[in-house]
Design a protein around this nucleic acid. Structure first.
Length: 568
RNA sequence: GCGCCCGUAGCUCAGCCGGAUAGAGCAACGGAUUUCUAAUCCGUAGGUCGGGUGUUCGAGUCACCCCGGGCGCGCCA
């Protein structure tokens, strides 16, 4: 099924050919409702190219353009724009078709790819914290959207399970561990011994050396240390799983850093042999002398002491994803500070001859009300578990205020959908690169561009069907009379135009903003038109329109990883 | 020093490939409720798009320079 935009663009392109003109400009949604629904600047572009009057050219093109099945007669406006206004019966027909289309008109991508998406990446021996929200939620949404568009997606959690920090953790484990605390709250105890060791190490070179020895033993495969390490990983995974369950996030594979351990020496040898890497000051480095921005920023892949670092691991990870997983493209979702690092890694991959499409999808930070990196009062990272629990708690409080009739069992479920949805939506509704200020009051507000507002639109729709006690009627074509009905139906037709755009530049906020407008259009319709009290055949048509609105909202939110409650 | 990201209404933010008189939401002000959930809707007001120069029919968007903020830059990840 083709969108209005595609249908119009095709006809327009034919008209250009008929007028002996090349393809030019683009046909896009109108920038303002006064200009109708779609517009094209083709005549402006051609006018410039050919030194002709754009308005005259526009008239000439229009003479050979027949879009009467879709639009009112197109008009020439301004400097030479051509504006299109959809006919309401064309909208009614299209919306009628969408009623029986599970994809709501969204076409599958013309060339589908195998995409490895790397997101989340928490560190073992540290609880997940606010800093992980963005990567996790953004990566998940992109994975959902890419799958929906027909791509083959492999979600990979590149867990930080093999860092220098384990020297300290193991030292702490051997010297400071409290078994009872470990049983009560394993991760908290691991964090405690890590921190305490760290403090000791700062003041005591002997402790520092002992930690280093523990790390060397671990890396050499010492059984006792490996066992401790395994236990730490297992405890951390429990914490991660709890958070991922709450967030409804899953991974296909979790190849953490340790997965690549035994591949690292070969990576370095290979890069040395091929001349991509060289030895400098005892370390193995890759230089990028021909790239001005990187000329003075080498990438170390083996430390002077012979140890490997995260760059080595990431080069090995590229190998695995291309050679073993056969990825066509790799998306790595992390915060902006890692831009330089991945630029280097991708450049190394290019030099090694990899042709895959590597994308580093970066995002900004979450700030506290003071506009500084979000921290607890004592200056620590805010644990993600606590933050999510707080979201649910606050959502529950609001439900109790607004809708005391809800049963206790329902409350838990609804509070979770609203609380988690609010946190996710606050993130996804914003352009990923901007730092944003975290505010409970804003994200949980029922007014404005928030998850609860969107969920409420859905709930109102469900409420209508609960009240009527009948399922959505089967209707082929809608009857659109009221301007708010036409507007809502047009909005629904745009879903298929919006979803694929998200992947142009990895911007789920485009979809979020669309859904906000959809919910807004629905609310306006809801105020203006009674549904159950209207007479047939209007009643049936409006019920169908409600049903369609609800399902598009649900699907759209699902693509963002957000759930909808039936009541709230 | 070099590099990356950001700067748009009082506040929080949209504005992807350059398009028409720069848009939302919150807050403010004024209206609408015997309800299909007012958890909403309608309206008013609010801007030198950090500053400047340039590119062109047209610049919030592109280029260059400056200012301000954040972050990163051989042996942490």
């Amino acid at each position: 099924m083709e969108t209005f935009q595609t249908l119009l663009a095709n006809k327009f392109s034919d008209a250009l050919a008929k007028a002996g003109l090349p393809t030019a400009g683009e046909l896009t949604p109108a920038t303002d409702a006064r200009f109708g629904d779609y517009q094209t600047n083709a005549a402006l572009v051609l006018g410039k190219q050919r030194g002709e009057n754009p308005r005259t050219l526009a008239e000439k093109i229009l003479a050979g353009l027949d879009v009467s099945d879709l639009c009112e007669p197109p008009t020439v406006a301004g400097a030479g724009f051509i504006n299109f206004t959809l006919r309401s019966d064309a909208v009614a027909k299209k919306a009628g078709e969408l009623l029986s289309d599970e994809r709501f008109g969204v076409a599958k991508a013309s060339s589908t790819k195998r995409i490895v998406i790397d997101f989340g990446s928490p560190n073992v021996a540290k609880p997940m914290h606010v800093g992980h929200i963005r990567s996790t939620v953004l990566g998940d949404a992109l994975a959902r959207i890419a799958s929906f568009l027909g791509h083959e997606v492999i979600r990979d959690n590149h867990i930080g399970d093999w860092g220098t920090q384990f020297g300290m953790v193991i030292y702490g484990w051997k010297n400071l561990l409290d078994r009872e605390s470990l049983q009560r709250d394993p991760l908290a105890e691991i964090v405690r011994i890590y921190k305490e060791t760290n403090e000791r190490a700062i003041g005591d070179p002997q402790v520092r050396e002992a930690c280093r020895q523990e790390l060397v033993k671990l890396q050499a495969g010492n059984k006792e240390n490996i066992d401790i390490w395994n236990e730490c990983v297992a405890f951390s995974m429990q914490d991660f799983d709890h958070v991922y369950r709450l967030l409804d996030i899953r991974f296909d594979i979790q190849c953490g850093e340790s997965f690549y351990n035994d591949r690292l020496p070969a990576v370095v040898d290979r890069l040395l042999k091929s001349g991509i890497a060289e030895i400098s000051e005892g370390a193995v480095c890759v230089f990028f002398r021909d790239i001005p921005q990187l000329a003075d920023k080498p990438c170390i892949i083996r430390k002077r002491d012979g140890g490997f670092n995260y760059a080595t691991t990431d080069v090995a990870t590229v190998d695995y994803r291309i050679n073993d997983l056969k990825a066509d493209t790799v998306w790595i979702v992390t915060g902006a500070p890692q831009i330089l690092h991945f630029r280097q890694i991708f450049e190394i991959a290019r030099r090694e001859g990899y042709k895959a499409d590597f994308r580093h999808i970066t995002h900004g930070s979450i700030l506290g009300e003071d506009r500084k990196l979000m921290k607890t009062r004592s200056g620590e990272n805010v644990p993600l578990r606590e933050l999510l629990d707080e979201a649910c708690k606050r959502a529950r409080k609001i439900i109790e205020e607004k809708n005391p009739d809800v049963s206790d069992a329902d409350k838990v479920d609804i509070a979770q959908k609203i609380g988690i949805g609010a946190v996710k939506y606050a993130d996804l509704s914003q352009y990923r690169m901007t730092d944003y200020v975290f505010s409970w009051d804003r994200m949980l507000s029922l007014q404005g561009n928030t998850a609860p507002y969107l969920q409420n639109a859905y709930v109102r729709i469900r409420s209508i069907f609960r009240k009527s006690g009948e399922p959505a009627p089967k209707v082929d074509k809608l009857i659109l009379r009221d301007p708010s009905e036409i507007n809502l139906a047009k909005r629904i037709c745009q879903f298929a135009e919006i979803v694929p755009q998200v992947l142009n530049d990895f911007r789920p906020n485009i979809l979020a903003n669309y859904l906000f407008e959809l919910a807004n259009s629905f609310h306006t319709f809801y105020e203006a038109c009674s549904v159950l009290k209207s007479d047939e055949p209007i009643r049936g048509s409006r019920l169908a329109l409600c049903d369609l609105s609800g399902r598009v909202l649900q699907r759209g939110l699902d693509l963002l990883g957000i759930k909808v409650p039936e009541k709230m």
